[in-house]
Write a protein that binds this DNA or RNA. Structure first.
Lengths: 197, 197
DNA sequence: CCTACCGATCGGTAGG
DNA sequence: CCTACCGATCGGTAGG
């Protein structure tokens, strides 16, 4: 039962995860060695294994945490918001805020999830689907209330593609806030979805 | 001078590149070993080096070729087309055709370009920028001729994000042709860019 | 294209 | 958390 110690959430383990997140986001999961992580922690590589059970465990922890955070933020942002357009706006803002707040972890989430084993990968996909369904539902609702007019799948595809690609173009340099960017983005996309009539 | 032999474009070398493309697209660059490539060619791993000079050379060849192909197809597709909207339509169709025709190589292009060394990476970025500029120019032209009304950067961002993310959602399963998908996509995005007046 | 091998490095473990 | 190490595997080379 001693291996359970490695799974508990201790401050030292959190350090490890944060250091690993930075490294993996910079040079990739495969190129990040357990020795690099240990070096930055100021310990020997063998000592890592009193905090973790394997290298993949670290990756899984990082990615799962991002998936959860995306979902939690989305839930909080849309709490009590019923208008479909306002829901979409809140979801987009929340998404961009997440990128702003946790850029390295978000990069790992998008770039490295394929490196997980099959079971872990399946869980991440499940969470991502649940997250994206929030967007799809808001768009479908918008169409039902006759505010939008378009293939809901197509509209969701355009919006989610733009958001999923956002780590490549959205730099939180202080010039534009997540709120402003989300509003600009939705101005174009919603106008495209609105019925002409 | 003997190492030059490894750089020439021979049928055997083309086999190697194709096999490597499939492997890398399936399991990633790092996980693909020179021994796996050699196995699929039916030779020993050491013998690979009469065709290539290094593993990264293979990756660079694959990615550079995709970047070139994207550009060539775009040039051909827009030859003599002057209307901005028609140019955009041709560019989108060409992009989706490329994904349909060369999916594994395209995946390597999008997923693995960061694994290249700095110099090679810079060249790939240069070509990608040139490719994307074709889209940006068409949108800017559309705005200048008063057909579109929006921040050209924003419109290009939405369109290019959707296209760059397309390997994740566009499956050429025979149901929808690149032409049909491009038209549907542009219907939403262009409507979003069109001025209300 | 093969045999035979290289130095380096990898993730991970045993036993303090 | 350390020392000391493990078997495995990596990309690549020499010399046919």
């Amino acid at each position: 039962m001693r291996s359970e110690r490695g799974q508990r959430d201790t401050p030292r383990r959190r350090d490890l995860i944060e250091i690993a997140t930075d490294l993996i986001s910079e040079i990739g999961y495969e190129q990040t060695t357990v020795r690099m992580i240990a070096d930055r922690m100021g310990i020997k590589s063998g000592s890592l294994y009193s905090h973790i059970s394997s290298k993949e465990d670290v990756l899984y922890k990082i990615i799962l945490d991002v998936a959860d955070d995306f979902l939690e933020r989305a839930d909080r942002a849309t709490e009590g918001v019923h208008d479909p357009e306002e829901r979409l706006r809140a979801l987009c803002r929340s998404h961009l805020e997440m990128i702003r707040d946790r850029r390295p972890a978000v990069r790992v989430y998008f770039d490295e999830w394929r490196k997980l084993g099959d079971a872990n990968q399946a869980e991440v996909i499940r969470l991502r689907e649940r997250y994206e369904d929030g967007f799809r539902l808001a768009i479908a609702d918008g169409i039902e209330t006759k505010a939008f007019d378009a293939d809901p799948q197509l509209g969701a595809r355009v919006l989610l593609s733009t958001l999923n690609w956002a780590p490549s173009w959205y730099v939180a340099d202080g010039k534009l806030s997540p709120r402003e960017v989300a509003d600009q983005l939705l101005e174009v996309i919603l106008r495209g979805l609105y019925t002409r009539g």
